[in-house]
């Protein structure tokens, strides 16, 4: 199992942050996910070897954190907040709109072309600018259905160009 050079560099750097190796686990898993699209079995085995903890222990950790996943999502994961502040300002409608536009019914579902997945999420810290969503790590706030359409179009274009 090979990590990219960048990820290796990240690993070596983070190792120097802590007195105990496994401390880097949570943020490093997220970086690993960024590289592979999800935390792969191989990555789990590799980290288990490096950090000298069981693969089970790593899975226990992964399954605790809602951003980490062990199955691929869409290239752009559309995370719509429906928590209270967003709820008051139409979060559920935004979620429904995103789901309808992208034609994914279930939570965390992926579009047929694999470009998008849609996920209902808890508060993302955009309460004063609600309703809000994140596409991967990008925040999009004060949403309206039209604004969502424009945003998704941009990502679709980006996906096509890659």
């Amino acid at each position: 199992m090979k990590f990219s050079e960048q990820l290796e560099a990240r690993y070596s750097d983070m190792l120097t942050h802590y007195p105990v190796k496994r401390s880097l686990l949570v943020p490093f898993l997220l970086y690993t996910q960024d590289e592979f699209g999800y935390v792969t079995d191989d990555a789990i085995e590799e980290l288990s070897r490096r950090l000298e903890i069981t693969a089970l222990e790593i899975r226990n950790v992964i399954s605790y954190y809602s951003m980490l996943r062990t199955k691929p999502g869409g290239r752009y994961n559309v995370q719509v907040c429906t928590n209270i502040c967003c709820l008051l300002r139409g979060g559920e409608e935004m979620l429904a709109h995103a789901r309808k536009t992208l034609d994914v019914a279930v939570n965390k579902g992926v579009t047929a072309d694999g470009v998008f997945s849609v996920e209902e999420v808890e508060c993302i810290g955009a309460c004063s600018w609600a309703p809000a969503m994140q596409v991967n790590y990008d925040f999009h706030e004060n949403l309206t259905p039209e604004k969502i359409d424009r945003i998704l179009d941009e990502y679709r274009l980006k996906a096509a160009q890659q």
Binding site: V20, S23, V26
Partner: peptide, 19 residues
């Protein structure tokens, strides 16, 4: 972090920081 409200609780925060 990697997505967990409870990790904001101070002792859970330390656990999270310990991996």
């Amino acid at each position: 972090g990697a997505g967990a409200y409870e990790v904001g609780e101070e002792s859970a925060l330390m656990e999270s920081l310990e991996g």
